[in-house]
Design a protein around this nucleic acid. Structure first.
Length: 454
RNA sequence: GUGGUCGUAGCUCAAUGGUGGAGCACUAGGUUGUGGUCCUAGGGGUUGUGGGUUCGAGCCCCAUCGACCACCCCA
């Protein structure tokens, strides 16, 4: 292979191993057909969260590595084996963000948002990165939207975050595919005590455990309760339960949360084995599980992280949040045969025959676009036959035909592509006639709102 | 990170170790000012990549890249 780039000596570059240029493992292009989904999902998220008083934030794609190691926990799977970590030119360790809560909390502190009215409500729609072995719905670059409520401890906030998450899933037509799994893991102190008790319980019983569980006993003992191996299940049944170790405050908090959820008519499954993979959670944890497939296909989750702000150097500040994976949402929308409305279809193709006609067509095309008629045309040469063929491929319901004859007569032909009938109008009336045919209400008149000058 | 399945034309897929095909799509013509249907013809491939075994490899073996599945874990 040619030595034409300085990537050539990089072991990981595809080189002669595959097609000359291709995306690396686990990442892919988002093509126009899928962007219809992304656009729609973003609209729903922005709309629902704006209604609830959230404001959007974007943190950098990469942060200093310690932002993540500190907040997520050194021994978590994400930190220990899934981060995209690299060094910059000065040898500083940077990491592509594997999730957003850590960065949002960092931004909260760095930008002194403690000074704002609390709670601060933020949402994001961002790409994230994890070095994982890819599978369907599991990519090395993936999009998540999420929300964070920082600065107030109240089970009513947990309830609202959960309600908003469900509201969004409903808007996307997939709420029924998922069940809300709910648990409380208490304060970090009570959890620590519980984990110690659990390890204590399993001490001396290691040889009855499966290989997996023996390894997890040191790193993630809570997972042992979830194992499907026969002997492990038996041991798990007799193991101490997390609920026994919950402090009074957490118990009361959780009871209130459930009361609020009931009040809002939100159904949930109490799942005492639900544990999230990140160290920063406390009290409330929840996930949305596939109703038929279970945990592997979780579409999103969240919980309370009352200790994180302080852990990252701020004053003790409670918080609660939620995040969901957009690729998984899209996969489920497709599975549920949910189609997304979009505005990409053309209105008009302008077929022109010859240079004289093309000159007449260009200003007309500009005017039509200005008025919100989605228009393509005045391209290529060829006979009227090939022009119509192109028009057909573009899928435009109308075609304006301009040939030498029409230029001379000062008219334009408007063809209805679905039935093949056509009418002849005065050239200067073409624009208004098209608006009439398309319908004022169908025009694509995007308005970003008026600019204000101070 | 562990174990496994798969990779053939733009797409979906055929091809006992013995000359790589079909449908759709594409291009041209039938129809030199009228597309989508129809008819006819045509272009397309180092079988993901690199090695090996064999008289001979799309098929067997090894490596590698990629997709997917089950774990691990999560979005």
């Amino acid at each position: 292979m040619a030595d034409d780039t300085n990537l050539a000596d990089d072991q990981e570059s595809p080189g002669s191993m595959g097609p000359p240029y291709q995306t690396p493992k686990g990442v892919h292009d988002i093509l126009p057909a899928d962007h219809e989904y992304y656009t729609y999902i973003k609209k729903v998220v922005r709309h629902r969260l704006r209604q609830a008083g959230f404001r959007r934030i974007s943190t950098p794609i990469f942060e200093f590595t310690n932002v993540f190691t500190r907040s997520l926990g050194e021994t978590t799977d994400i930190v220990s084996k899934e981060m995209y970590t690299f060094q910059d030119r000065k040898g500083r360790s940077l990491t592509l963000k594997p999730e957003s809560t850590a960065g949002v909390v960092r931004a909260y502190l760095q930008n002194n948002m403690q000074a704002l009215a609390q709670p601060v409500q933020l949402y994001y729609i961002e790409p994230h990165f994890r070095y994982d072995r890819p599978q369907k719905g599991r990519y090395r670059q993936f999009w998540q939207f999420g929300m964070e409520v920082i600065g107030e401890s109240d089970p009513a906030l947990d309830a609202q975050v959960i309600q908003l998450a469900i509201r969004i899933l409903k808007d996307l037509g997939i709420a029924d595919l998922f069940t809300l799994q709910l648990n409380s893991i208490g304060t970090p102190e009570s959890r620590k005590k519980y984990i110690a008790a659990l390890q204590d319980y399993y001490f001396g019983k290691e040889r009855h455990l499966c290989e997996n569980c023996r390894a997890r006993l040191g790193t993630n003992p809570l997972r042992l309760l979830d194992c499907k191996e026969e002997d492990c299940v038996v041991l798990a049944k007799l193991a101490p339960s997390l609920a026994q170790y919950l402090d009074e405050e957490s118990k009361e908090f959780h009871a209130d949360l459930k009361e609020f959820l009931d009040e809002m008519g939100i159904k949930y499954v109490e799942n005492s084995r639900l544990v999230r993979g990140l160290d920063y959670y406390s009290k409330t944890v929840f996930e949305f599980w596939d109703a038929s497939l279970g945990a592997q296909n979780a579409i999103g989750g969240g919980g309370r992280y009352d200790g994180l702000v302080e852990l990252m150097g701020g004053n003790p500040t409670p918080a609660v949040g939620f995040a969901a994976g957009i690729e998984r949402i899209i996969a489920n929308m497709k599975r549920a045969k949910v189609r997304v409305p979009h505005k990409d279809e053309l209105h008009v193709f302008v077929a022109q025959l010859g240079k004289e006609a093309k000159k007449k067509c260009l200003p007309l095309i500009m005017e039509m676009r200005e008025r919100g008629i989605k228009t393509v045309g005045a391209l290529g040469k060829g006979s009227i036959g090939t022009q119509l063929k192109i028009a057909d491929k573009f899928g435009a319901p109308w075609t304006i035909i301009m040939g030498l004859t029409e230029v001379r007569e000062g008219v334009a032909i408007i063809r209805d592509m679905s039935v093949g009938t056509q009418i002849k109008v005065k050239f200067e009336d073409t624009l208004e006639k098209m608006i009439e045919l398309i319908g004022e209400e169908n025009l694509d008149n995007y308005s970003p709102g008026e600019l204000l000058y101070s």
